[in-house]
Amino acid sequence: MRLGNIAFNSPSPINIDDSAKIELRLDLHQSPAELAKSITAPGKVESDRIKVSDHMTAHLSSPDFDITANTPETQAVSGAEPTSWIWTVKPKTSGEHNLYLDLDANIILDGVLTPRTIRTFSKTINVTVTPSQRFVDFAKENWQWLWATIFVPIAGWWWRRRHKSANVDVT
Rank of each mutant, 00 (worst) to 15 (best):
A166T: 04
W158C: 06
S165A: 13
I107S: 02
G111T: 03
D104T: 03
N106W: 03
V127A: 03
D110A: 15
E96Y: 09
V89I: 08
R119Y: 00
P153Q: 03
I154C: 12
D137Q: 15
A155H: 04
R116Q: 14
D104Q: 00
I154M: 13
W157H: 07
G156S: 05
L146C: 02
T117N: 13
Y100H: 11
V127M: 01
W87F: 09
A155P: 15
W159S: 05
K90I: 07
I118G: 07
Y100N: 10
D104W: 08
N126V: 08
E96W: 10
I150H: 06
T124L: 12
G156R: 02
G156D: 03
L109S: 00
H163V: 01
G95A: 08
N106D: 13
K140R: 13
T88W: 02
G111S: 11
E141R: 14
T124M: 05
T149K: 15
D110Y: 12
L103P: 15
K123S: 13
T128P: 00
L103T: 09
D169H: 01
R134Y: 12
T117C: 07
T128G: 11
T120Q: 01
S122C: 02
D110T: 08
W159P: 00
K140A: 07
A166I: 03
D104K: 05
S165C: 01
A139N: 03
V127Y: 05
I107A: 06
T117F: 11
H163M: 00
P115G: 05
W159M: 04
R161V: 00
D137A: 14
T130G: 04
K90R: 15
F151A: 15
L113I: 01
V136N: 06
V136W: 11
F121Y: 15
K90N: 10
F151G: 09
F151T: 07
Q133P: 12
A139C: 13
K164E: 14
V129Y: 03
L109M: 09
D137K: 15
I154Y: 09
S132E: 15
T120I: 01
A105F: 05
W87S: 09
G156Q: 01
A148S: 12
P91A: 02
I125H: 10
V168P: 03
W147Q: 14
I125D: 02
T93P: 08
D169N: 01
F135V: 03
V136R: 09
F138P: 08
W143F: 13
P153D: 09
G111L: 06
G111I: 09
G156C: 07
A155M: 06
I150G: 14
L113Q: 13
W145Y: 05
L146W: 12
V168E: 09
F151S: 09
W147G: 05
A139P: 12
S94D: 06
L109Y: 02
I154E: 11
